[in-house]
Design a protein around this nucleic acid. Structure first.
Lengths: 131, 131
DNA sequence: TTGAAAATGTTATATTATAACACTGTTACA
DNA sequence: TGTAACAGTGTTATAATATAACATTTTCAA
């Protein structure tokens, strides 16, 4: 079963709270510096919380940036179909929530014999402001 | 203009040669270790070659693995539309060459105002052998 | 109430990537 | 023909990202 927020551990809550307030992708060490006042002193504490939050879909990792962002899809319980829009100008990252896109990709098959169960898509470009 | 292979510099050729022979994604430091006999002694030499090779589309970076693989699409000159299939079992990575998929994604638009000019897609699952 | 699983705290270290600077070779073109 | 611009090289050092390993504590269902 998917874990609910109230089941999160202390460190997991602290890390998730901070990421959710940020509204933008955060680096692990930036999270670490900012939660040190809450008692998380060393990298493994942050990385462990992040690993778990990613696993349960509360947080996504933006692979091209090594950064972590809260999931905007409130009922997202598992992170097996993610798509992001990344502005090369202002670095703004937005989670794409597009049913047609996710349906298309979730149903994607080719003749390689691979059985796909997860994907991550990152689009790059320029947003309105940066054009 | 896209750079042709014969225009590659010495270090770029050495690194590309090694990646092409591998037929699988390689880590930067594994490349470094293996090209030391060819005279590339320090990380920046490898990373600079990789940066350039990625820029001109000869090499792609598998972001979820921090690894580099030769482009299989022989006429690929710029790396703005990439899709990979990654087996979670044996770690085999294959570049997906599917015109319908690339057409769909290259033409993707949403109402965010973003103008997309590049994407990277990574599919995960299990290959025939690993199922 | 106890024991297995999950989480925590901690130190150290591994892995990935870039900064900075001096130098070399090539090319264009005034 | 000299010189400026530029891409590439070599090198040392260090920054940034992530995990190993191990001891301890908490949780919670059997």
């Amino acid at each position: 079963m998917a874990q609910k927020q109230e089941n999160l551990s202390k460190n997991q809550k602290i890390v998730l709270d901070f990421i959710e307030k940020a509204n933008q992708p955060l680096k692990a060490y930036s999270i670490l510096f900012n939660v040190q006042k809450k008692g998380l002193k060393a990298p493994p504490q942050v990385y462990r919380a992040l690993d778990r939050l990613v696993e349960i879909g509360k947080v996504h990792k933006i692979e091209s940036k090594n950064a972590f962002v809260a999931c905007k899809n409130s009922n997202c319980t598992i992170s097996n179909a993610t798509a992001f829009s990344i502005c090369d100008g202002c670095e703004k990252v937005t989670e794409i929530s597009n049913p047609k896109l996710s349906k298309y990709l979730s149903g994607f098959q080719d003749n390689s014999g691979m059985k796909y169960n997860k994907y991550n898509l990152e689009f790059f470009g320029l947003c309105k402001k940066c054009r």
